[in-house]
Write a protein that binds this DNA or RNA. Structure first.
Lengths: 196, 196
DNA sequence: GGTGAAAATTCTGTGGG
DNA sequence: CCCACAGAATTTTCACC
């Protein structure tokens, strides 16, 4: 399995700045030909690193309400459930689940009617307490830093290195630290799928 | 000043799903010609609603460290300064400033070395206290909801309606509820610029 | 604002190293 | 894995409504 090299990182960095930049431009910047860039972008998508191309919107100009930041302390073990409920909500933009069982959400709600949002998308028994803050402004820096490609094994959780494997199931990429983990995961996956 | 109509919202929605989708595709979906879509996208960019085209990355595959969420309580009146310092940092992805003087930041740092990050980018006299949480997972929902176009007047803060004005200064769009606010703002802006 | 057709660019295969 | 080339597709420009 191939990892990321500096050329890949350069391509990602340029596309983060402008995802509609012509491949020929990018090719010149990174010292490749346009078709080679196209190939690499395809590979980055297959690998699952590039999930897609999208817009950077200024949502402060698009308010159908008030932007809020909500900090929810979930009941033990229920943080993932809270996150799942909120992630589907239309008004929600970001959901961060932290290791201490807290879920931090940003959303734009009609008039700070956060309780309605929680009512509709979360089982209130999962919530210990929550706090609402009005967002004054927010910024998003689509940077890459010195990113390394280091996925976790979908079966055992270990870091996957160059020796690892990648398998595509139903269009999603999964990474494995070894062939054994891979075949075990695929077996589980297939039996689950048959059951459904 | 023109607002957003359903066609604009349709275009934005389609581009959110795939920012590299051909304009001719979009044109067919929304019932326009390709040049008309191109014109509208240009206008959306001029209006500042579309800040740009970018990538949706799966950063969980790209860890250059540990993803953290930091909650910083700034000293009175210093929240904006804290935000500005952090927004420039390479490791920082999101910065949310809330009305209660708190700055919430997500970043990916080498090994939870958050103090170094703050040291390098923030005047510690501006910080009252801060708390660090490890991010277990995060999600981003590039949805649009039932967005209305309703910017705030850059001079007086009132909501700008169809009667309002838009002015472009140094490449950024500014909105005003009336001509009086506009000329006052432009005067301020120009004298500030001369001073600098 | 919008359209339609022509011109300029860009993307995507294919063959070859 | 990469390049060069060529055909297909797309974006942009322009005249006109």
């Amino acid at each position: 399995m191939r990892g990321l090299d500096d050329t890949d990182r350069g391509i990602v960095r340029l596309l983060l700045e402008d995802a509609r930049r012509p491949f020929s431009d990018i090719a010149e910047e990174v010292g490749l030909s346009a078709p080679a860039v196209s190939d690499r972008v395809d590979r980055l998508q297959e690998m699952g690193i590039v999930r897609g191309f999208t817009l950077d919107l200024d949502r402060s100009l698009l308010r159908a309400g008030v932007p809020v930041l909500v900090e929810i302390d979930a009941e033990p073990g229920r943080a993932a459930a809270v996150r799942d409920g909120l992630a589907d909500a239309d008004a929600v933009e970001h959901v961060f689940r932290t290791a201490d069982g807290r879920v931090t959400v940003t959303a734009t709600v009609p008039q700070a009617e956060v309780s309605d949002l929680l009512d509709a998308h979360v089982d209130l028994n999962d919530v210990d307490s929550y706090e609402v803050r009005l967002v004054a402004d927010s910024e998003w820096t689509p940077g890459l830093g010195t990113a390394e490609f280091a996925p976790e094994c979908a079966e055992c959780g270990n870091t996957v290195d160059e020796e690892g494997e990648r398998t595509v199931l139903d269009g999603d990429s999964y990474y494995f630290c070894c062939g054994s983990c891979e075949s075990r995961f695929v077996d589980h996956y297939e039996s689950l799928k048959e059951g459904a």
